[in-house]
Amino acid sequence: MEDDVILKVRDLYRTYDISGGLLRKASQLTAVKGVSFDVERGSTLAVVGESGCGKSTLARMLTMIDAQSSGEIEIDGLSIDISKTGISREMRQKVQIVFQNPYGSLNPRQKIGHVLEEPLLLNTDMPSAERRDLALEMLQKVGLQPEHYGRYPHMFSGGQRQRIAIARAIMMQPKLLVLDEPVSALDLSVQAQILNLLADLQEEMGLTYVFISHDLSVVRYIADKVMVMYFGEVVEYGTQDEVFDNPQHDYTKTLFAATPKADVESIRKRLAAKAA
């Protein structure tokens, strides 16, 4: 599947206006500054960076929540510029998002079945029985039970909620899934389950992932390509091995150095240093 590029981003900018107050002048903040990258079909691009680096802004543009200020986004051959063309059903079916916080991303007053059926209800003319069957099928696919269909989100654990959020995202059979820190709010053991689930789904449905994360160990595990962002700019972009084995930019190096190491060797070294 060489050169089968599903997501093409060129020179993307996003500028926010900060409205001035009585004593302050209005100013502008550029959250994403000229980002370009390609993602191949069925692969995973990890976007790494710390808070304020523009990675979530990027996710919002890719998923058509916000419009770009300038630059091109092309998903599966479809050019995306919602400020000019608006959003069509076709565009909506291409890309979906999974949010970081599974406690905030599900409507507390909506039963799970309705959560899953909402995209179908709004975008297709499917009869309700069929919608329900599809929702049940999807529940099973993400490792939940049919009896969960009628329950409210607060009856689920964080990991289960994230499964529901993933099920909702793939209801429309999207090509591209943007995962905005999907496991950083979860416990370690649950994180492993969700990462496994994502890997399974990718294989089964041929999904392409843009995986946004600040956790390098997760990125190392899941990514094919890695893009490091720093203050809205891409400072490092390459295959996983290239970036992890031979980081070029100072910031990437700092990031690696700061990541806690949980291997026995590092602990020994630390304890020795402390005893000295």
Binding site: L188, S189, V190, Q191, A192, Q193, L195, N196, A199, S217, V218, R220, Y221, I222, A262, D263
Partner: peptide, 16 residues
């Protein structure tokens, strides 16, 4: 073993 950096195979072992 659920730590991603300790992953050996394709799948992460989970607590369950």
């Amino acid at each position: 073993s659920a730590l991603p950096e300790n992953a050996t195979g394709d799948r992460l072992p989970t607590v369950s």
